[in-house]
Design a protein around this nucleic acid. Structure first.
Length: 590
RNA sequence: CGGGGUGUAGCUUAGCCUGGUAGAGCGCCUGGUUUGGGACCAGGAGGUCGCGAGUUCAAAUCUCGCCGCCCCGACCA
């Protein structure tokens, strides 16, 4: 048992000025973390205990799923990243480190980077150590600090520059086996979050800079989340908006026949979708072609959408570029022949079509049939542009952002949209990394094959905050039993009274004997302070001892999540405490 | 990186517009009274007003630069 006076639990009455959301305020007020700088936090004793609880649950589930724990360096020689497949894209988020000092100057290029994730480290290790099919499959994990130079750290631990992550990497002999490993991890994740008392949903997700063939995210529905999740309760379809698709284009859609010959018409000053919608043009946004120009790995390419649709930039990842960004007017005009606002991809109107890496069209533009697009001449647009006849499309795809209410791709029912926090992500990587690092093994026919990889992350520190965000009330945190810094709080209202202290210690000992982590509030504070603090720090079970109760021969038992106070005769103290503690433990395990 | 906001005691903040003594609440220390939902009284400590220039007789306050932090965005041609 731990005495409050012997640990360090600095609670605050007021929320820190820099905290915006509930969970961030409570993290600080309950004395779990303190900020060092933007995105950098000290885990205070109670916060560290929560992290350790979560970590231990994670370790148990990973071990149960057959993963093997190890520990890798966090200072990565940059060569490993340069050999890997995503140096160009990933260097943006990495902190650099060097040998400068003692007379040595830093090189222009970093010598080391701080690890944001460890594919580039684990794959060479496995290449060196595993060469036979007999040693596969293998899945290695670690629970450690990660460093990411987030463009904008946010909301306390929610998006930090230094954070705690469980990362795992699976290596399999072939695709089928890799899918087995993937599914085993996915199931372990689901168990992990349930055991943490956290409600999550798993959604299809974009693979992003990680690359790979498919992935699922574990999301905590929350208004303050960074991600949008699209889902359908009927069919169970659920996807990150970056990845989500809808049934807006029917599979049997017949493309419209040309409505007439293309006509060029003047549109002086009309350079936006809205301007063309307005008088005197009156072209609805869903009859306009929106042409966006991007630079992908140094080359210009075009994306065509309906005027009423939004580009989902993450979906451009499917085009195979490492890095992409919107093109500038200076980059666009020489190739297209006009400035943004008058662009289009109608055949024969692009000044220098060979300079385009491609024209990528969203399926939904087929719904337009015949519409209006820019003429690639400033101040002019074209009407009667037919999708099939007139547009020079290199590749069709899904590039638009799904909106709430569009038909579910499975059930056709209206899709819903919700904000969510990403707490876990599983990727099937394929051979992207094993190719680059030459991670091959020999099979039983003496044939060489690439290992098939998967990688799996859980944001441990983010999970802590997500739990607080999901379970709190006006008085403070309500910890689930499994991750509470302490599970039982014995509040001794009269610590100067030896009789009260004796009972308090007996209760604490009984709870501890039944398997609970126990904190005893032995401070010389007034009762109001102790109750307020108890609610704030959110210990699930509170046992109160005070002179008033002792006169009646009772102590009080109260769950943080409930209102009722149960008066328990002191004579039954040992058995009642043992019973409720073992029940709570059993429920947490179930 | 762009936009907005903000920086005053450990925390939350007033004062800034209109330049002149830096104030409160919480917390902390001492003493007393209290003692079942953030007590009360008395006394006390604690501030380079983010940093640096400038204007001025005089700067927390006005001007310029820099830095930190928070929020929004970083796509919509």
């Amino acid at each position: 048992m731990k005495f409050w006076s012997q640990t360090f639990l600095p609670t605050l009455k007021e929320s820190p000025a820099d905290a915006e959301i509930t969970s961030h305020k409570l993290l600080v007020r309950a004395g779990l973390v303190r900020k060092l700088s933007g995105g950098l936090y000290t885990y205070m004793p109670a916060g560290l205990r929560v992290i350790q609880k979560i970590t231990q649950i994670c370790r148990e589930e990973m071990d149960a799923a057959g993963a093997i724990e190890l520990w890798m360096p966090h200072l990565h020689p940059v060569e490993f990243w340069q050999v890997g497949p995503r140096w160009t894209a990933a260097r943006e988020i990495m902190f650099r480190a060097d040998h400068a000092g003692a007379g040595r100057k830093a090189f222009a290029e970093p010598e080391f980077v701080l690890g944001p994730t460890h594919e580039e480290i684990i794959t060479p290790l496995v290449k060196a150590e595993i060469t036979s099919y007999r040693d596969l499959p293998k899945n290695f994990y670690q629970i450690a600090t990660k460093f990411r130079n987030e463009i904008r750290p946010r909301y306390g631990l929610m998006r930090a520059r230094e954070f705690i992550m469980k990362d795992a990497y699976s290596f399999d002999a072939n695709d089928e086996a890799a899918i087995v490993s993937y599914n085993r991890m996915k199931q372990a994740y689901a168990r992990f979050f349930v055991r943490c008392g956290l409600k999550t949903i798993s959604v299809e997700a974009d693979t992003g800079v990680m690359g790979g063939s498919f992935s699922h995210e574990f999301m905590v529905p929350a208004e303050v989340g960074d991600d949008d999740v699209v889902y359908c309760e009927e069919s169970g379809y659920a996807a990150n908006r970056e990845k989500a698709t809808s049934g807006i284009v029917a599979a049997d859609l017949q493309d419209a026949a040309p409505a007439g010959t293309i006509e060029k018409f003047p549109t002086p000053g009309a350079v936006t979708i809205a301007a063309l919608e307005a008088d005197p043009y009156g072209v609805p946004a869903n009859r306009q072609f929106k042409t966006l120009l991007y630079i992908g790995d140094g080359r210009l390419f075009a994306v065509v959408l309906r005027g009423c649709d939004e580009l989902e930039e993450a979906k451009l990842g499917s085009l195979g570029f490492q890095l992409w960004r919107p093109a500038t007017p200076e980059e666009i005009e020489p190739v297209m022949g006009a400035k943004p606002g008058s662009l289009g991809v109608a055949r024969g109107t692009i000044r220098n079509p060979s300079a385009l890496a491609g024209v990528y069209a969203d399926h939904a533009i087929r719904l337009i049939g015949n519409g209006v697009t820019g003429a690639n001449v400033d101040g002019f647009h074209l009407r009667n542009v037919n999708v099939v006849r007139d547009l020079a499309v290199t590749q069709w795809g899904d590039f638009r952002s799904v909106q709430a209410g569009e038909p579910c791709p499975k059930s056709g029912r209206p899709l819903k949209l919700a904000r969510a926090i990403e707490v876990g992500h599983v990727f099937k990587l394929g051979t992207k990394y094993s190719e680059k690092f030459g991670a091959v093994y020999t099979d039983d026919k003496k044939q060489s094959h690439l290992m098939v990889m998967g990688c799996y992350g859980i944001g441990i520190s983010r999970t802590m905050q997500a739990i607080i965000e999901q379970v709190n009330d006006a008085d403070g945190i309500i910890w689930p039993w499994s991750v509470a810094p302490w599970q039982v709080l014995v509040v001794n209202l009269d610590p100067q009274d030896p009789a009260a202290t004796e009972v308090a210690i007996k209760l604490a000992a009984a709870a501890e004997a039944a398997g609970a982590d126990v904190l005893v509030d032995d401070r010389a504070e007034r009762p109001g302070v102790k109750f307020k603090d108890a609610d704030l720090i959110g210990i699930p079970l509170r046992l109160t001892v005070g002179g008033r109760g002792l006169k009646e021969g009772i102590f009080e038992l109260k769950w943080r999540s409930a209102k009722e106070v149960r008066k328990v005769p002191l004579a039954e103290a040992g058995t009642v405490v043992a019973q409720v503690v073992s029940e709570a433990s059993a429920n947490a395990r179930a």
